[in-house]
Design a protein around this nucleic acid. Structure first.
Lengths: 239, 239
DNA sequence: TTACTTAACTGACCTAGTCCAGAGGAAATG
DNA sequence: CATTTCCTCTGGACTAGGTCAGTTAAGTAA
């Protein structure tokens, strides 16, 4: 704001911001290529890339690996404490939701999983990996880990719907309490590919453990969000 | 993990990781300079910088603007729902806390502030800007905004202590409910300087509104955390 | 002792390119 | 009509430097 001496970088950023202000047409609009922009601003691709990265940090634009740069649509307001499931949450914000089941498998719990689930190492669990879209843009990669003994035949159900709902309707488990951690980390190949990121790009990770009526654990969940796609809100009343 | 073909970047990262593994001496240890490292790995400064940035995203190292790169100490586990104040929180995790009052002033609420506080625009508020340290490292820039009418003479108190405690002991206001938002954004000059970041580097922003017994607003708070310094945890039980 | 100056060192910022691999559409092929 | 092949466009990864502006510590003068 004050004393912003017109460095090349900030000049490019300002120009891009103005360029974006005009193109308010639709979110997810594609920007010109890095090469084209570097010519337009008569600078190097490296410098231009830095300007784009800065705007990415601000949450104004986002990138898709080898696909280009796009204008950020409005963020999803996400309250991890609310019992509201994904599709309802998205619809309530006048957006379009889609869930794709990527993989489903039975495996032995690794260190992190068995710790969160309070299991002995090498206990058998079900893993459900799903990709969630908002307005056709992949924004969330989720892995649900459930203790297989508690959920007979669940892998035969339709897993593209809300799992919370499935737990309650088919098995009578209700989530009454949840604990979670929010961190930033780099995306591994699996997550990066699904979210159209480059490997190592930043994602918002939420590790969550859900407890049922009796205080016993239902499942744990690893959510990997595109950091530009979401705002997390918490209200202590809704806890 | 799988099929990570040895690209230059990943080779540097791996070497640095091993280098870090040896230097477990003390957190906050300084790395050699970018120039020295680029010679050591026989690569360019740009490439090396990218490797460092990737490790920064992973939360392994952090940078201080024009001061160098350092090994990340253990993160602070922070539960924004708990009533626990900063110094206690930090001490409970066997760390050393310090609070520095940067500025205190009376002003008219801007758009964001008056919206959060539920005030008419241009109402008078007090703003308290403070910098919090963990083990002598600045990790949190906080701005508290209070409705001046509710807090007569508060600016004359010792503001380096817990404000929550001050509210309760001097004014009888108790925080019974709080709402907050977690986002990522770029640091402005003020925040960047205080946290030893470069302007535009990423910070974790938490906007919080505190309510007292009767459900009326006590204050709102803007927290800017070094993203590498903290893990946010929430337990719905403690809400 | 205290204040000021200086000089070395640091990351931040910048130029000017090359080569590579994935994405995606168009054309050729079965 | 469906599949595959190919070619173009994209960002990702890399080289090889230079300049600029804060940080810091050592040295110097009051």
């Amino acid at each position: 704001m004050e004393n912003t001496q017109a460095t090349q970088l900030s000049r490019i950023q300002e120009s891009l911001r103005q360029l974006l202000a005009k193109n308010v047409l639709h979110g997810s609009q594609k920007l010109p290529s890095e090469r084209a922009l570097s010519v337009l601003f008569s600078t190097t691709r490296i410098t231009l890339k830095e300007a784009l990265s800065a705007l990415e940090i601000e949450g104004v634009i986002y990138r898709e690996s080898r696909r280009g740069w796009f204008v950020c649509p409005a963020r999803l307001i996400y309250n991890p404490l609310s019992r509201c499931h994904f599709h309802q949450l998205v619809n309530d914000q006048q957006r379009n939701a889609k869930t794709q089941v990527l993989a489903v498998h039975t495996q032995f719990a690794d260190a992190q999983q068995s710790k969160l689930l309070g299991l002995a190492k090498r206990s058998e669990i079900y893993c459900i990996e799903r990709l969630r879209y908002v307005d056709n843009r992949p924004v969330l990669y989720v892995q649900n880990c459930l203790i297989s003994a508690l959920f007979p035949n669940i892998l035969k159900q339709d897993l593209s719907q809300s799992l919370t709902q499935l737990y309650q309707q088919q098995y009578g488990y209700q989530t009454l309490r949840s604990r979670f951690e929010v961190t930033l980390c780099g995306a591994n190949k699996q997550v990066a590919d699904a979210l159209h990121l480059a490997q190592g790009q930043q994602v918002l990770k939420i590790c969550r453990v859900n407890y049922q009526q009796q205080g016993t654990i239902i499942d744990c969940e690893f959510e990997y969000w595109r950091p530009d796609a979401v705002i997390i809100t918490i209200d202590s009343h809704e806890g």
